[in-house]
Write a protein that binds this DNA or RNA. Structure first.
Lengths: 248, 248
DNA sequence: CGCCCGCTTGATCGTCATCAAGGGCGGTGG
DNA sequence: CCACCGCCCTTGATGACGATCAAGCGGGCG
């Protein structure tokens, strides 16, 4: 069926599976299925057991946990090409987070069995898998480092730099990959604090903000920025008094 | 030589390698070597590349990063049977943390090559490796959850419960696995704050502290404990009962 | 046109870090 | 055996950073 073929194509395009032979891809396809989610829909809950993992083809998925009091904390935002759930699958323990679509999304679900046989037949694939998990682990350690020894302003700057480092050196323009609330949570901030920090950075001339569009005129200057100078002028004539492009 | 034999024995005893055949263990041993560290010694620095990973046979190793201002944050404390560095090895990126011996320690270093060939010959081993990394990832997510949405008191309680859940249900006695400073850092607290929290928990009758020795009379009561009532009794109705030595 | 939601802005409050001493214990040397 | 010193831990006082509470604002969509 054309549906099967479709899955095969999608799988073959994923970085993870580049090295597999066609026959292996085909076998993987047999253990996979497509999943469509509409915005806001929940994929699985915290505590669920996973018999496979997920790859995002299109859209955006949020991984988060929620505290008893109902507040939630975004751990990760996964976009096209990204995957999640591998660790839980290998571990065979309840999942520590829940997942929700931030937009209408299109996923692939790949059952454990397919992966296991792929590992058996191709040790290079096993290494890729290992390297993939290692990358994820690295990212998490990064997060822990951020939370532990960077201030909120530093975390925001780090996040912006991460988004900015792709394009032309020196300056950059890009869009925030999600709503400010979601990003704030990802950075372990309240929306209020996030808003204030963006404001103060733009006051300082380090960035410009228009909706989701952010431009960084001088990346290295932003990266050098260390402490947050007081956003409000307690001492009336702070240096930031005039700097203002009235944000038009 | 007897040294080689020694390594073989040590390797064979590790959970990770239980399933390997003797011949495979022998091969692994050829890619391994022993390392002795004395207390305080540094194994490798942040930023180093690893061509293998480490297993703790005896002693205690601290994984931490340090901020530019010289303060350091303990990520993990690894004891006998534990390992570290796998992720960095698979990833082939600079290591995000440095490692230091908290006591005189005895390690095994296992070179990448040995692991790769083991993966090739034994897909069960590959799965174990995958599961191992997944467990590590799980722990890190746990940490992120703790830092993000638990108060300092809750983190301390969580830590104590983790140490306590082994022995007789109901109550428990155990020793802190390291100096209070190190543990405080592991919990992302200053030594001062950690001290105060232990004090207030013991005031509340939930634990007793004598040096490193901690006893928990009622584990479930400790786990139910939610908010930190002020150390001084503002509200008379506090559940912390009669335990008050009038500290003034 | 008007509502709702995402975002901003302001005021206040709590938690935890910081700064600064003071105690206790183990080790070392007299 | 005791005195001394260092280190770890404790205790107290103060302050800063970011959360919370409470309104206002603006823009997209019905």
């Amino acid at each position: 069926m054309s549906k099967q073929l479709n899955i095969t194509r999608l799988l073959a395009d994923l970085p993870l599976f580049q090295q597999l032979r066609d026959s292996e891809i085909a076998q993987l396809a047999m253990e996979s299925r497509e999943i469509k989610l509409s915005k806001g829909q929940i994929l699985f809950q915290k505590g669920d057991l996973l018999e496979g993992f997920y790859v995002v083809v299109e859209g955006q998925i949020k991984l988060a946990f929620s505290s008893p009091q109902g507040q939630e904390k975004v751990v990760s935002i996964v976009g096209p090409g990204g995957s999640f759930g591998e660790a839980v699958m290998f571990m065979e323990k309840p999942c520590p987070v829940f997942t929700q679509a931030l937009e209408d999304s299109h996923l692939l679900y790949i059952a454990k069995r397919g992966i296991f046989t792929a590992i058996e037949h191709d040790s290079v694939f096993a290494r890729r898998m290992l390297a993939g998990l290692s990358m994820r682990l690295h990212g998490l350690i990064q997060d822990v480092e951020d939370y532990s020894l960077h201030s909120s302003t530093q975390r925001v700057i780090g996040f912006l730099l991460q988004l900015a480092d792709k394009p032309t050196k020196g300056h950059a323009t890009f869009e925030l990959p999600a709503s400010k609330q979601v990003i704030a949570s990802r950075l372990n901030l309240t929306p209020e604090t996030f808003s204030r920090i963006l404001h103060s950075l733009s006051q300082a001339g380090l960035i410009t903000v228009k909706g989701k569009r952010i431009t960084v005129p001088d990346i290295t200057r932003l990266s050098r920025f260390d402490h947050a100078p007081p956003p409000c002028a307690k001492n009336a004539q702070a240096p930031l008094s005039e700097a203002q492009t009235p944000l038009e």
